[in-house]
Nucleic acid binder design. Structure first.
Lengths: 195, 195
DNA sequence: CCAGTTGCTTGACACGGTGTCAATTGACAC
DNA sequence: GTGTCAATTGACACCGTGTCAAGCAACTGG
């Protein structure tokens, strides 16, 4: 799980990310990854016991590469609840496109693979904690809308920010990334801030 | 596609719906359906050329059974834009749970089957037309929020009402169906109605 | 220099699920 | 009876995942 990561492992993970990034999603087979990494298909199994495990390892690799923590720092540092909300929505909204290939692979695998489903659920759970923190900050400022509990408000924000929604607006409906962030930000304000 | 539907075909379709309804989703194999319909696996292929085609036929069967048109009538008949929006959100919001099994199967199949993806996209396209109509009615009443084009407002409503969002709130976060409808309705008002 | 270990290769194979094909059977109609 | 139709059985191809065994090349240490 957390052994120092050999030369070859890194190559496999990098190849995986490369393939996922270029739209692949489901169509990234173990053999594709092996080929991209320049090794045999079987050799991949010497390092990762299953496709699900490889994908999970690849997300960790991606997180380290993208430095998730640094991105969330501004949100955590925000003075007011409103600022915190805005920073969080902005950060996550711009993070989604970078992890979309990964997300797609997980979402496609999840219905058939319990381990993948579990891993994805966990990540979404983590994301929801950010939502909760923002909502709590709003509540502390007495800025949270009436008519929603803190839990409900967190769920609503979490849903609004889901990768699927991003996919719908960006990919299906052709929104630009800028417009997506603008509208989602404004929506979050309308839904969560007391008028 | 639209031949009169034999005895056996009906039995297959009914069996399919029965299995999908009981949570199955992905785990509904051709052999399961055959067994449930009381025929051999191969016989299913005598009536439907592929799993995707069978699922598509099953949605049509479901639509007829659930009488989609009747459900949408109140929305179409609404006098004001606001009423139309409310009727539409209410109707669709209560329809989702009834088609959820079906939707799950499509969503799981779509990444690997172009025909299934196409069929699902088409259905979502139809649903979006309802959103567009509601938004147009709002605009006609001069009630549409500023800052969104009609197309954007339709997309936003369409996204808000997505099956995935329903799934997130109801299945992942444990919301009740009533609360889901209430909150989504109120959200639609907040996002789309000029204050 | 040889022995052992490590990391990879090749090739073969099992499994599960979809989809195809051929031969057969049973029922019903003319 | 003969033909036709709907279904059956059994076998098989294809794909992608995952497993296993044997071999090989390079490095390491005695």
């Amino acid at each position: 799980m957390s052994s120092p990561e050999s030369q070859t492992e890194t190559r496999i993970l990098e190849a995986t990310l490369r393939l996922l990034e270029s739209g692949g999603g489901e169509a990234v087979r173990m053999s594709d990854i092996a080929k991209a990494a320049g090794i045999s298909r079987q050799a991949v199994y010497l390092h990762f016991p299953s496709r699900a495990a490889l994908l999970i390892a690849a997300t960790h690799h991606l997180d380290r590469k993208k430095d998730v923590e640094a991105r969330l720092a501004p949100s955590r540092a925000a003075a007011s609840g409103l600022e915190r909300l805005e920073a969080y929505v902005g950060a996550w909204g711009t993070y989604i496109p970078e992890i979309y290939g990964m997300a797609k692979a997980f979402l496609a695998l999840a219905p058939r693979d319990a381990a993948a489903a579990e891993a994805w659920t966990q990540r979404m759970e983590d994301m929801r904690e950010g939502c909760e923190a923002a909502v709590r900050a709003l509540a502390r400022d007495d800025q949270l809308v009436e008519g929603l509990t803190e839990a409900e408000a967190s769920d609503l924000l979490w849903t609004l920010l889901s990768v699927r929604n991003w996919e719908l607006l960006r990919k299906e409906r052709g929104w630009t990334q800028e417009r997506y962030v603008e509208v989602v930000l404004e929506s979050a304000r309308l839904l969560l801030i007391r008028p």
